[in-house]
Design a binder for these strands. Sequence first.
DNA 1: GCCCAACGACTGCCTGAGCAACTATAACCG
DNA 2: CGGTTATAGTTGCTCAGGCAGTCGTTGGGC
Lengths: 167, 167
Amino acid sequence: MTNVFDDPRITAVGLLFEAHAGLSARFTAQLEEHGLSAVEFEVITRLARSPGNQLRMTDLAAQTSLSTSGVTRVVDRMERDGLLTRRACPNDRRSSYAVVTAAGMQRLNETLPGHLQMIEQWFTGQLDPEALAALLDGLRRVRDAAHPCATAGSDDTSFEQADASRS
Amino acid sequence: MTNVFDDPRITAVGLLFEAHAGLSARFTAQLEEHGLSAVEFEVITRLARSPGNQLRMTDLAAQTSLSTSGVTRVVDRMERDGLLTRRACPNDRRSSYAVVTAAGMQRLNETLPGHLQMIEQWFTGQLDPEALAALLDGLRRVRDAAHPCATAGSDDTSFEQADASRS
DNA sequence: GCCCAACGACTGCCTGAGCAACTATAACCG
DNA sequence: CGGTTATAGTTGCTCAGGCAGTCGTTGGGC
């Protein structure tokens, strides 16, 4: 089968995508044990690492892979589940913040150790330090080239996504 | 901000996921110029590289990231668009094949060169050969560890996914 | 040969997400 | 100030995809 599909470029993409899919599936499974979807985990993580555990809806959308309407709906669900609240923005009445509640922080704290363990088990722990460094270095260059700068021109400074994106 | 989110493991996952998201977006854009979604491209690619340009529905599902019902529906759409046909399986009347039509092959041939170019532009061309080799080596190990063996126990021998999986 | 379990494909129902339209507010500009 | 334009968030509509249930087919046990 001397066809075009054996092209090394295809193989390269395949590896990256399958690695992503594999990790994604593992993470999703673990997150669901704690009642969080991958998207919800990303949302709550982004909020929890922001000053005041809050972010304006638009900024949240820019930091995640969601559209603003997508954010509206995730926040709806998570608010219903008590993990988040909306808070009015004092100086701009159009804006509102999504804020992590105490219950949300607790849920996140229950989830994170297992999540880090999964990362180590299926990803970082699979490689010795130099190989991992080389991998990350390559990924960083690809990311810098290809990443559409966080879905919306928000600052996006240096934080790397931390979830298991559906995919 | 000395918080847990600066953990190098989080950063590593973030890099991988952002690289994937970035490439995914680029590929999706190029594929849509040719009227194909990422999933459709994966489907037609998988079929085109199989003997007879065909695959049983179940096997197709196993090779893609789709469930069997998902496959039923993609094939529905692509059949409607004239890219694929269903063909009855002679020795098992439960099964049916999805077959790429001439139009489907043509569409694929129109799409592939640009796709390969995108891969080179945003991924493989970003790194010198040794760095690329190191990256792929790391990815392969992560993939082998984490990949849930192709979503369903099908053979899955050695072919690396070739699409831009929405992810 | 007959029955029952397993399997392949399809369908109904539901959820999640995007786009485009809409409302309310803010900012800019004369 | 008054009016126009841009922005933040929400909502209606649509569509893709998964799960679970269905129907026809197959194969194995007896």
